[in-house]
Design a protein around this nucleic acid. Structure first.
Length: 827
RNA sequence: GGGCGAAUAGCUCAGUUGGUUAGAGCACCUGUCUUACACACAGGACGUCGGGGGUUCGAGUCCCUCUUCGCCCACCA
C-alpha cells in the first residue's frame, strides 16, 4: 500500500531510500493500522504482537544475526549465482517452498530452428514458454539420439533475433519426450542453467525484474525493439504470432503441466538467474532425519513421517535472501574500494578494516522463516546461553501445528534445534486437520467461507468452540464446519456446557456448602451398589482418557518405542470418554438414584455427598482442558473437605489430573442389574403407552447370583421408573402381567391392568405377541451361538477365551429361552 | 509422473492387535414442562460397512483388484 502511495506521488522506494521508506511504513501502520491495534487491545492481546510482524524485537533480531553469522563462519551460508524462483510482482526471490505448484492447462509450442549453413535442414524444439527462446544459447539433444547425431556441433539460427546457437549433446535431454530436442535458456530455467554450466555457455537475461521483455547488457540485441518493455505473457502471444507468420511455428498442442506461483500473491513465478544467499541443507538435515528415524521425535499422524523423511532426503539448499525491504537485513558487509572479502558480522561494520573506506551492508533481507526456524530457542533467550528460560524449557514437548508448514517451519526448527542447541526442540509433532466448509474447501478470506471465532464465542461460548474443535478432531482428520449453519456445528458443544452447568447447579444446591467427607474416610460397607458403580465408571473414564491421550513423554531413553509412538493424542476419544461419564453415567444414572438419599439425610446422605462431590471434582479435572471456563467456575464452588484437606490448588487448571483409585472394592455389577431392569420397565411402559404419571407395581424375582440387598433394588429401581417394587422369591402368575427376563435370569413382572388402565385389562394377546417376538429373537441368537460351537473348526482353532465366552453366552441364552418359553405357554 | 490417505446410519465421524447382536453426536418419529437441565428427559426407527474377488473356523478390520474423492511431492523441456 505504501508503495502505491509513493507511486502516486511520483516516488519509488529506491528514490526514497531505505531509512525514509521504513519510517513512512511505520507511520502507515500507526495510523491505518491503529484500528487493528485497538481491536487487539480490546480482546487483551498485546500490541507488541502486531509490531513484531513488521520489525523484529531486539532480542529476536540478535538471534537472527547470531544464527546467520555462525552458519556463515561454519561455511554453511554461501552466496550463489543461479536460477531461483522470482516473483515479478513482489520483486523478490522465493524459496522452493514459497513457490507453489498449480496445475495449469497450457500449451506445448513446437518451433523450428533452421541450420545456419543449410536452411533446408532444421531442428524442431518443444517448449511451454516460447518467449524464452530469445534467451536460448543452444539446443541440446541426447548423445545417443541417432536422429540428431550428425547435427551436433552445427549452428542453428534463432528465429526473430537471428542469434546463432550451437547444437550440443547432453544426457539431460530425454529422446523420448517432445521432439527429443531441448532449447537451452540458462538464465531462465534451473535445468538449462546446469546444462549451460557444463558446456560453458553464456547466460543472457532477457527480462527485467518485472518480467517485461528486455535484454540487459550484452543480451540487449537479443530482444527485438518492438518487444522491449512488453510483459512476458503478452510477449508470448506476439512471439507465437510472429513465429507463425515466419513459418517457424510447427504446431501447438494442449499441455497440462504444473506452474509455480508465488504463495503470497499467486503471480506466476519466473525462473531468473541472480545472486542469492543460500544455506547448505544436507549437513543440517542429517540429525533431523536421524531424530525421526530413531524415535527421538515422533510425528503424528504417523504417515507424515514418511513425507518428512522423503523431503529431507532430497532436500536442496535454501534460498534465504529476499529483495524486500521489510525484514532482517543480511548482516554481511562489503568494501567496494579494496574488494576485501565480504564479512558477516554480529555488529555493524561502518569502515573497511583493510582500506578504511566506507563499508556497505548487503541490501537483501532474510526470508521470514529464517527467523521463524529459531523460534523454539530465540523465544527462550538464545543466543544467551545463560538464559534461565532456555535452561528450564528447552527442549519442549509437543508442537501442535498444521501439516502445510511441515517443511516451511517444523523441519527447519528441528534442524536449527540440533545445529544451535545439539538437541531436538520437541519430542512430538502433532499435525492437526484443516478446518473446511461443507464442500471440503479450506476456509479462506477470499472465498468468504470462513467462520469468525468471535461470533462463535459470542453465540455459543468459548467452551463450546473448544469442545467442537477438540471433540471433532480425529487424529489427522479435517474438521468440516458449515459457515451457513453455525448451530449444526456448535450447538452440541453449547448443550454439553449447559448440561455440565446444570449438573453443577443441582449438585451444589443439594450437597450444600458443609464440608464433605473425603472418599478415603468412608467405610466400603456403607457404599451402595450405585456408589460402587459410579466410582467404577469414574475409574473407567479416567483410564480411557489416559489411553486416548497416551504417554506424555517418551521413556527414560528419550526415544519413543514403536508401541508408544503411535499411541495417544486421540483428542476425540478422550473428549468422548469424558462426556460419556459426565452425561450418560453421572447425570443420567447416579444423580437420579442419589436424589432421595440426599433428601433423606443422615449417615447415608453423607456417603452420597462424599461420592457425588468426589466424582464431580474428578469429572471437572477430566474436562478442564476442553472446557476450561465452566469447569473452573464450578470447581471453585465445591464444598470444602472435612478437616480442611486441600484439593491440590486454588485453581482447577493447576489442581492436577485425576487418578484412578488404588484400592479395589466389589464391582458395580449389581447396579448393572438395576440399570437393565429400569431400562426394561421403561420400555414396557412406553410400549403399553402407560401415562408417565401412573405408578405401577413391579415384582422382581432376582436370580440366585444376585447378592445385593432387596432394599437397594426396590429403592433404586422404584425411584427411576415411577413404580413400587416388590422383591419376591415366588413366581407371579404370567396371566395378566407383562413379563421381562433379564440376561442374568432375573425376572420382572408388571400387571397389565396397571400398565394399560382398567378399561383394557383383558388384553393379554398383545403381551403374548410381544413375548413371542422376544423369544424368537433370543432363539435366533442362541441358534447362532450353537452353530458356532458345534463347528469343530471353531472350537479347535479359536482362542480359548473366545470359545469360553461363547459357551457362557450359550448358557445364558438357554436360560432366557426357557423362561420365555414357559411364559409364552402360560399365556 | 511418484507417494499417501479416505469411502461405515440422511449428515459429520468413532470402530484398539480379525472374535460373535457395528457405535456416538446431529437430524428424524412417539411421549413428557417428572421442582438441575425442553440447549432437557424417556422410548423408537434407520447401515447387505463403495463394487468385485481372495485368505480364515470367523472379515468393517488382512490381501488383490476396480470405482470415486482428497492430500503431499516432482527440474521432462
Amino acid at each position: 500500500v505504501v508503495e502505491k502511495q509513493l507511486a502516486a506521488e511520483g516516488l519509488t522506494r529506491d528514490s526514497l531510500g531505505r531509512e525514509a521508506f521504513v519510517k513512512r511504513t511505520e507511520q502507515f501502520v500507526e495510523t491505518t493500522g491503529g484500528e487493528i491495534l485497538n481491536q487487539l487491545k480490546a480482546i487483551g492481546s498485546s500490541a507488541d504482537w502486531t509490531r513484531t510482524a513488521y520489525t523484529l524485537s531486539p532480542p529476536l533480531s540478535e538471534a537472527v544475526t547470531e544464527a546467520f553469522v555462525r552458519l556463515f563462519e561454519d561455511g554453511l551460508v554461501y552466496r550463489g549465482h543461479r536460477v531461483i524462483h522470482w516473483c515479478p510482482r513482489c520483486l523478490t526471490s522465493l524459496s522452493d517452498e514459497e513457490a507453489e505448484f498449480n496445475d495449469t492447462q497450457g500449451a506445448m509450442y513446437h518451433i523450428r530452428y533452421l541450420m545456419a549453413d543449410d536452411p533446408t535442414r532444421s531442428i524442431t524444439v518443444a517448449t511451454t514458454r516460447p518467449e524464452t527462446l530469445l534467451g536460448d544459447v543452444a539446443v541440446a539433444v541426447n548423445p545417443t539420439d541417432e536422429r540428431y547425431a550428425d547435427l551436433v556441433g552445427k549452428q542453428l539460427v534463432l528465429p526473430l533475433n537471428g542469434v546463432r546457437i550451437p547444437v550440443i549433446a547432453d544426457d539431460y535431454t530425454d529422446a523420448a519426450f517432445g521432439t527429443g530436442a531441448v532449447k537451452i535458456t540458462p538464465a531462465h530455467d534451473p535445468n538449462d542453467f546446469e546444462v549451460g554450466m557444463r558446456h560453458k555457455l553464456a547466460t543472457p537475461i532477457i527480462m527485467d525484474a518485472e518480467a517485461r521483455m528486455n535484454g540487459a547488457g550484452d543480451a540487449v540485441d537479443r530482444v527485438p525493439p518492438e518487444l522491449r518493455g512488453v510483459d512476458r505473457f503478452e510477449a508470448r502471444e506476439r512471439i507465437v504470432n510472429m513465429l507463425r507468420d515466419g513459418g517457424a511455428l510447427v504446431k501447438v498442442v494442449p499441455h497440462a503441466h504444473a506452474v509455480r506461483h508465488c504463495y503470497r500473491c499467486d503471480t506466476v513465478v519466473e525462473p531468473r538467474l541472480s545472486d542469492q544467499w543460500f544455506v547448505k541443507m544436507a549437513p543440517l538435515a542429517k540429525p533431523a532425519l536421524e531424530a525421526v528415524r530413531s524415535g527421538r521425535i515422533r510425528i503424528l499422524p504417523e504417515r507424515w513421517e514418511a513425507v518428512y523423511i522423503n523431503w529431507l532426503e532430497g532436500i536442496r539448499d535454501w534460498n534465504i535472501s529476499r529483495q524486500l525491504w521489510w525484514g532482517h537485513r543480511v548482516p554481511v558487509y562489503y568494501c567496494d574500494m579494496c574488494g576485501a572479502a565480504p564479512r558477516a558480522s554480529r555488529t555493524p561494520i561502518a569502515i573497511c578494516e583493510e582500506c578504511g573506506a566506507a563499508a556497505r551492508q548487503d541490501n537483501d533481507v532474510l526470508d521470514t522463516w529464517f527467523s521463524s526456524w529459531l523460534w523454539p530457542i530465540s523465544t527462550l533467550g538464545w543466543p544467551n546461553a545463560q538464559s534461565a528460560d532456555l535452561k528450564a524449557f528447552y527442549p519442549g514437548d509437543v508442537l501442535v501445528t498444521a501439516p502445510e508448514i511441515l517443511f516451511f517451519w517444523v523441519s527447519r526448527m528441528i534442524m536449527s534445534g540440533y545445529y544451535f542447541m545439539g538437541d531436538a526442540p520437541y519430542h512430538t509433532v502433532y499435525l492437526h486437520g484443516t478446518v473446511r466448509d461443507m464442500q471440503h474447501r479450506k476456509m479462506s478470506k477470499s472465498l468468504g467461507n470462513g467462520i469468525d471465532p468471535m461470533d462463535v464465542v459470542r453465540l455459543y461460548g468459548a467452551d463450546a468452540l473448544r469442545w467442537t474443535m477438540i471433540a471433532g478432531m480425529g487424529l489427522g482428520v479435517d474438521v468440516l464446519l458449515d459457515p451457513t449453519d453455525l448451530d449444526k456445528s456448535f450447538a452440541p458443544g453449547r448443550n454439553f456446557g449447559t448440561k455440565l452447568w446444570n449438573i453443577g447447579r443441582f449438585l451444589l444446591t443439594k450437597v450444600g456448602s458443609d464440608p464433605v467427607m473425603p472418599l478415603s474416610s468412608i467405610a466400603p460397607d456403607s457404599l451402595t451398589i450405585a456408589d460402587r458403580w459410579i466410582l467404577d465408571r469414574l475409574d473407567a473414564a479416567i483410564n480411557e482418557s489416559n489411553i486416548a491421550l497416551g504417554p506424555v513423554r517418551p521413556g527414560p531413553s528419550g526415544a519413543w518405542t514403536d508401541a508408544e509412538r503411535n499411541a495417544g493424542m486421540r483428542l476425540d476419544a478422550y473428549a468422548d470418554a469424558a462426556r460419556r461419564f459426565v452425561w450418560n453415567e453421572l447425570a443420567d444414572w447416579y444423580l437420579e438414584t442419589v436424589k432421595p438419599r440426599l433428601t433423606a439425610g443422615g449417615a447415608d446422605a453423607d456417603v452420597a455427598r462424599a461420592v457425588l462431590v468426589h466424582c464431580f471434582d474428578n469429572a471437572l479435572r477430566l474436562l478442564q482442558p476442553i472446557i476450561p471456563f465452566i469447569t473452573e467456575t464450578l470447581w471453585a464452588k465445591l464444598p470444602p473437605i472435612v478437616g480442611g484437606a486441600e484439593r491440590g490448588s486454588d485453581f482447577l487448571s493447576t489442581s492436577g489430573w485425576p487418578a484412578v483409585r488404588t484400592t479395589h472394592m466389589a464391582t458395580g455389577e449389581s447396579f448393572e442389574l438395576v440399570r437393565n431392569a429400569v431400562m426394561a420397565i421403561r420400555q414396557i411402559r412406553n410400549e403399553y403407552k402407560t401415562k408417565p404419571g401412573v405408578l405401577v407395581n413391579v415384582t422382581l424375582i432376582p436370580s440366585a447370583t444376585d447378592s445385593a440387598s432387596a432394599e437397594q433394588f426396590t429403592t433404586a429401581i422404584g425411584g427411576l421408573t415411577r413404580s413400587t417394587v416388590i422383591v419376591s422369591a415366588t413366581e407371579p402368575a404370567a396371566q395378566g402381567a407383562a413379563q421381562i427376563v433379564l440376561s442374568g435370569g432375573t425376572e420382572v413382572s408388571i400387571p397389565l391392568a396397571e400398565l394399560m388402565g382398567a378399561e383394557s385389562a383383558e388384553d393379554a394377546a398383545k403381551e403374548k405377541l410381544r413375548l413371542a417376538a422376544e423369544l424368537e429373537q433370543t432363539q435366533k441368537l442362541l441358534d447362532g451361538v450353537k452353530a458356532r460351537l458345534s463347528n469343530e473348526a471353531f472350537t479347535a482353532r479359536a482362542k480359548a477365551e473366545i470359545v469360553e465366552g461363547a459357551r457362557a453366552q450359550e448358557r445364558e441364552l438357554i436360560q432366557k429361552v426357557e423362561a420365555l418359553t414357559k411364559k409364552v405357554a402360560a399365556l
